[in-house]
């Protein structure tokens, strides 16, 4: 076990844990944002640089600070390590820079993007980004392409987190035909010469995509996310590798969309198969368990069920504040 301090919060985690996962074990504001790391995908992480943190003390044995900011998703903790995340102005400055870099070529077409409302980049931008861009040049654009008959690739929005390529490698069995072509800011994810992705688990690429680059063709433009109700549901799936545990997104009784169950860090608990995701769109296909608690902080978490309590408190607090202001005046 290793004792590590992140932003003044002490915790004890098993050796070999990354700083990010150590922070997640406690949760709250000390957790660095992560756009490319995905705990269920081996080898992911280290690329987006949003989770950079400062290590102000390497370990008890070697207390020297690390010379550069380190990606917390790929740096393992040492006993006695002291990490600064939101308490370090240097980290916040670097993170602001990264968010700006991620957004300069992003179309910012949130009003017409299906991911809006549950988009990691949107959340990141609200939290760490600047109000206006300093980028004056033309943004890079690509043609929208279909990868397979169920997935739409909108490369303009991609932030090259590589998650979907890891899904293609590790989750979706079959020939490896999805990867990165070209390099630098011309790099794009693509299937091998637009070959269709043919695998029962390819749909998970949509779930792991942090932005709206990969969207579900059976659900695109169906509804804004925040107008649909997320409900936990399950069915007996024939596929032995699929648990059949999903979230169905309903509008009235209609099921508009099916996704995996995502945790507070927007990672799915279990990968689901394409049959569950794309073909079972009738309420009768599913056993509906009840409303899904959306942990991930976003607009969709603001108006559903459990959060009504928080909102009530917020409103009351606001009312008290207004009242006291009036009294003062």
């Amino acid at each position: 076990m290793a004792k590590v301090t992140i932003d003044g919060v002490e915790m004890e985690v098993p050796d070999g844990t990354t700083i990010l996962n150590a922070a997640r074990s406690v949760g709250g504001d000390i957790v660095p944002p992560a756009m490319c790391y995905y705990s269920k995908l081996e080898g992911s992480g280290g690329k987006c640089r949003t989770c950079l943190v400062k290590v102000s003390q390497g370990s008890t044995n070697d207390p020297r600070p690390m010379p550069k900011l380190v990606p917390s998703c790929r740096t393992t903790v040492m006993d006695g390590m002291v990490v600064e995340n939101i308490t370090s102005p240097e980290v916040l400055e670097a993170r602001k820079g990264v968010v700006e870099f991620l957004l300069i070529n992003h179309p910012l077409d949130c009003p017409i993007c299906d991911q809006a409302g549950e988009c990691d980049l949107q959340n990141l931008g609200y939290k760490h980004g600047a109000a206006a861009t300093r980028y004056e040049e033309e943004r890079r654009t690509y043609k929208k392409i279909d990868i397979g008959d169920k997935i739409k690739l909108h490369m303009d929005r991609c932030i090259l987190c590589y998650r979907c390529t890891y899904v293609a490698d590790q989750v979706a069995d079959g020939d490896r035909c999805h990867g990165i072509i070209n390099r630098g800011d011309h790099a794009e994810i693509s299937t091998y010469i637009e070959k269709a992705i043919d695998s029962d688990f390819s749909g998970n690429m949509i779930d792991v995509c942090p932005v709206g680059a990969l969207t579900d063709k059976t659900a695109r433009f169906g509804s804004r996310v925040w107008f649909t109700k997320p409900m936990d549901a399950h069915r007996d799936c024939d596929n032995p590798k699929c648990s059949g545990k999903v979230v169905v997104w309903q509008k009235g009784e209609d099921i508009l969309r099916v996704t995996g169950r995502k945790d507070a860090y927007h990672e799915v608990d279990e990968f689901i198969c394409n049959t569950c995701r794309f073909e079972k769109k009738k309420a009768s296909d599913w056993v509906i368990e009840g409303p899904r608690h959306i942990n991930n902080k976003s607009v969709i978490s603001a108006n559903h069920y459990e959060h009504l309590k928080d909102i009530k408190e917020d409103v009351e607090k606001y009312q008290r504040q207004v009242a006291s202001n009036i009294n003062k005046a």
């Binding site: 690329k47 987006c48 640089r49 949003t50 980028y135 590589y162 990165i180 630098g184 790099a187």
Partner: peptide
């Protein structure tokens, strides 16, 4: 450097192109 950036991590991928422009 813009031409030669591998495009793996965001600061270099986006930043080199921006500086060039």
């Amino acid at each position: 450097y813009h031409h030669e950036s591998c495009g793996q991590c965001s600061p270099c991928r986006e930043g080199t192109g921006w500086m060039e422009k």
